[in-house]
Amino acid sequence: MTFKVRTSVLDNSDGSAELTTSDVKLIVSITGPIEPKPRQELPNVASLEIVVRPAVGLSTTREKVLEDKLRGMLQAVIVRHLYPRQLIQIIVQIQATPLSKHQGGAYSNHRDEVEYSNVELNAAINGCYFALVDAGIALYSSFASTCISITKPHEINDNQEYIIQPTLDQLNNSSSHHIICFSIEDKKATKLLLIDSLGEFTEEELFTVISKGVEQTELLHENYQRKYISDKIHNDYIWKS
């Protein structure tokens, strides 16, 4: 599994992160807290402006849905009452998706290929975490997200397979795929923030996926997020020693 993060990649924004996973590459930029337009202003909390830009072409209904899900999730983790009448702008620029990689960069308008926009959602959530930390926006807790697909057995004797971070081919052969996002406190996944499951699955499968999600998000936190934060603090306070 590839999971590469670079932060502060953009000079003119308050925080940014570039996330590269095996399928998806994206940059998240955070600007804020800044002065909002009058119509965006909320009297007691910060308003969020979330923009998702696709890898190729202009944004469509697909990006609107990603923005909507991202907003629902982020408004629960950002301590919004710390920034009343302010705006936090979050821009996610997707650079590569499983589909665009699959087709050698050529984007097809034919919609012949089945799209898995949730894979991008998964990466966007993880990217937002690093960018928000980089921008110094107050969060209630850490959060991490993972994508798991279930492949149905072809033979009766086979077990069904749970695949973490599935590739496009694996998704294509899967019977369902799930995005699980947990909040993380004291290295432990505590609260469910978001589940987005599509396909066909049973309740039992769902709860297996959730428990695998706990493992995966904790791993992600342990291996990448913690390390990144301690490095960041070390670098930020380098003058102190």
């Binding site: 629960a76 599509l198 699955f201």
Partner: peptide
């Protein structure tokens, strides 16, 4: 057939959390 076709959960309010019990 008790198969789930779509599940979308968003805990937009962290204080009114949908726990696994509630999901169940």
């Amino acid at each position: 057939n008790e198969k789930i076709k779509r599940l979308s959960l968003i805990n937009g309010d962290i204080n009114s959390e949908i726990s696994l019990d509630i999901l169940q």
